[in-house]
Design a protein around this nucleic acid. Structure first.
Lengths: 161, 161
DNA sequence: TATTGTTATACTCTATAACTATA
DNA sequence: TATAGTTATAGAGTATAACAATA
């Protein structure tokens, strides 16, 4: 498909119900959304019972890799408002997954760490995420997988300005 | 990157704050989510003032392409609960963007159409979406863009079973 | 009985604004 | 004054369950 044809009113594939998708399947934005929804749905079923969301998995991973980091530092990477992050972290602390203590040098800061149950949970979830990643990798092959990671990063960068 | 390395604890790139991303940047699920967030954010700013969400754009497009379709038919494609779709459609009807009337042959059904203001709005939003698609296409080039659409569709299919 | 659609309700995730405490 | 974090509140988007109307 040429770039120009993005503007055409193409007829998308019909579902088995006879409903047409119109131009949506030819749009990257739409297909990215569909893929993201599929990945989240699979995540939810594969970790059902572990009581964890994709966002919480990211958060636990970031705290694991950055022990001692503060909430404000995390918002630079996990892009939500500090009030939202406060609620998320409070939830993880209440569940015994994360521990925090005020910094000795500047008592405004918290320092965050994974508690042992958090590390255990992260390990279990990581297994499921790795399984999910392998399933996608098998559908693409190593070269396409690597190419796709690069393309997704470039797309993010398109809108950073 | 090999498929096996998905399991490694790779060190992700550091943000300009010194925070590490850990294994996240090497995960398709994570990068798909990042791209989706970036696309939605750009959508929101580019159509700000038009009071429309990405989901409403999809819905208006589907109604445009399938005039006369019922709400139940739409849920086969726009995958939300019928109660959720009822609320969404009610909102579009109240805003004068969509019209509905009971089917003559089976009065349980609604038949949905775009009202004139809905068609006008969809046209404006479509211009912005096309601009967004061209921006992404420019960052990829025609071949990669087409390849990416195919890969995204395959990823959705991985989880359909 | 089954299907279409609505409503009441609740849950999750989010941001804004006002706040406390520390610096 | 400025920064780190919390809380109150509100809005968007979602699903479940009970329901009314129609078949």
């Amino acid at each position: 498909m040429s770039v120009a044809s993005v503007n055409d009113t193409e007829v998308g594939e019909a579902a088995h119900t006879g409903i047409l998708f119109g131009p949506l399947p030819g749009m990257l934005g739409y297909q990215i959304r569909q893929a993201q929804t599929a990945v989240f749905r699979d995540f939810a079923t594969s970790v059902s019972g572990l009581e964890i969301s994709p966002g919480e998995f990211s958060l636990l991973t970031l705290i694991d890799v950055n022990p001692g980091a503060s909430q404000t530092q995390l918002t630079a990477v996990y892009k939500v408002d500090k009030s939202t992050l406060s609620l998320r972290i409070s939830g993880l602390v209440k569940r015994g997954l994360v521990r925090r203590s005020r910094s000795k040098t500047d008592r405004r800061y918290y320092a965050l760490w994974l508690a042992a149950p958090g590390r255990r949970l992260l390990g279990k979830v990581r297994q499921q995420v790795d399984r999910q990643e392998r399933a996608m990798a098998a559908a693409l092959g190593p070269d396409e997988r690597e190419a796709m990671l690069g393309m997704l990063e470039r797309i993010v960068r398109v809108f950073e300005s």
